[in-house]
C-alpha cells in the first residue's frame, strides 16, 4: 500500500513524515443516498493535502468524517497508527484535529479575541469554581492561553481587529479569524473547508500565504477542500479527487492534472 518511503523531503525543502491519518474503505450513506463510496486515502505528517471535486462530490462529507461529525457506515479511520472508534466531534478535537467551516461559524456578537480564545478551550483545565472567581490556576491559564492567542493574532496579522466584534468584519477577515481560532487550538491536523470561497484575488493570495506559513512555521498537517484549481495546484503536496462520492484520482498536483478521468470529470475536456 505504501509505495512511498516513511518520510521524504519535498522539492521546496519541507519534510513530509509518515502516515498520520488513514481512511480505509469509507462508505457514508444518508438513507438511500450514497455520499461517499468506498474511499481510501492517507494524510501524511506535515503535508498539505487537498480534496477536490465538483459540487456534490462528497468533499465536505469526507471532511466531516475526518472531524468526527459523521460516522461512516463502513470503513475505518486510523489516526496515529490506531484505529479510531466512532467519536463525537469534541472528542476528535481533543485529539488535535481542528477545522474551519465552509459557511463561517463564528460567534458573531463576540470580539475577535474572544472568538479565538474559544479555540483554546481544550487547553484549559481549571475547574468551574476557580474560573468563576478567576483565581489560582484559572488566572495563570488565561494568561498562558492569551499569549498563545496573541501570537496567533500576530501571525495572521489581525491585531488591529482584536477588540472588534466579528459581526462588523468583512467576509475575508472573518475567514481569517476562523483560521485563527482553529490555529489557536494548536492542532496536529488542520481541516480547512473551502478557505478561499468567495474571496477576491488579493484575499486568496493572502490566505494561500497564511496556509503555507502555518504549515511551514508550525509544521501543521493540513487537509483542505478547495474549488479554486490554481490555488490547489499551487499549494498542495498531494490531491485526492472525488466525483459522485467516488475517488477518481490521487497523487501530486502534476499527476492529477494529467489524469484523464479527472480532466473529464472536473476540469473539462482538455484542448490540445
Amino acid at each position: 500500500m505504501f509505495d512511498q518511503p516513511e518520510s521524504f523531503v519535498t522539492s521546496d525543502g519541507r519534510t513530509i513524515g509518515g502516515v498520520m491519518m488513514e481512511m480505509k474503505n469509507i462508505t457514508l450513506r444518508f438513507g438511500g443516498v450514497v455520499a461517499i463510496q468506498d474511499i481510501s486515502f492517507d494524510i501524511r505528517e506535515g503535508e498539505i493535502r487537498a480534496i477536490i471535486g465538483p459540487n456534490g462530490a462528497g468533499k465536505s462529507s469526507m471532511l466531516n468524517v475526518i472531524s468526527g461529525f459523521y460516522n461512516p457506515q463502513e470503513g475505518e479511520v486510523w489516526y496515529k497508527g490506531e484505529r479510531r472508534p466512532s467519536m463525537k466531534p469534541f472528542e476528535v478535537a481533543r485529539q488535535g484535529i481542528a477545522r474551519t467551516f465552509q459557511n463561517i461559524a463564528l460567534f458573531e456578537g463576540m470580539s475577535v479575541l474572544d472568538n479565538v480564545m474559544t479555540g483554546r478551550l481544550n487547553h484549559m483545565k481549571a475547574g468551574i469554581l476557580s474560573q468563576a472567581f478567576w483565581y489560582g490556576s484559572a488566572q495563570r491559564e488565561e494568561t498562558e492561553n492569551r499569549e498563545v492567542v496573541e501570537r496567533v493574532l500576530d501571525f495572521l496579522e489581525i491585531q488591529h481587529i482584536r477588540k472588534t466584534p466579528v459581526s462588523r468584519l468583512p467576509y475575508g477577515l472573518k475567514k481569517r479569524v476562523e483560521l485563527a481560532r482553529a490555529l489557536a487550538a494548536d492542532p496536529k491536523i488542520l481541516l480547512l473547508d473551502e478557505p478561499m470561497a468567495g474571496m477576491n484575488v488579493e484575499e486568496k493570495e493572502d490566505m494561500s500565504r497564511f496556509i503555507l506559513d502555518v504549515n511551514d512555521e508550525f509544521g501543521t498537517t493540513i487537509a483542505l477542500i478547495e474549488h479554486d484549481m490554481s490555488v490547489v495546484m499551487d499549494i498542495s503536496d498531494r490531491v485526492v479527487v472525488m466525483d459522485y462520492g467516488k475517488k477518481i484520482g490521487d497523487g501530486t498536483p502534476k499527476d492529477v492534472r494529467s489524469n484523464q478521468a479527472v480532466i473529464d470529470a472536473y476540469l473539462g475536456v482538455a484542448h490540445d
Binding site: 521546496d12 503555507l212 511551514d216
Partner: peptide, 11 residues
C-alpha cells in the same frame, strides 16, 4: 541581509 521577523523565511 539581517532580518528581524523570521516568519516565512525558514526555507
Amino acid at each position: 541581509i539581517i532580518y528581524l521577523d523570521g516568519r516565512g523565511l525558514r526555507k
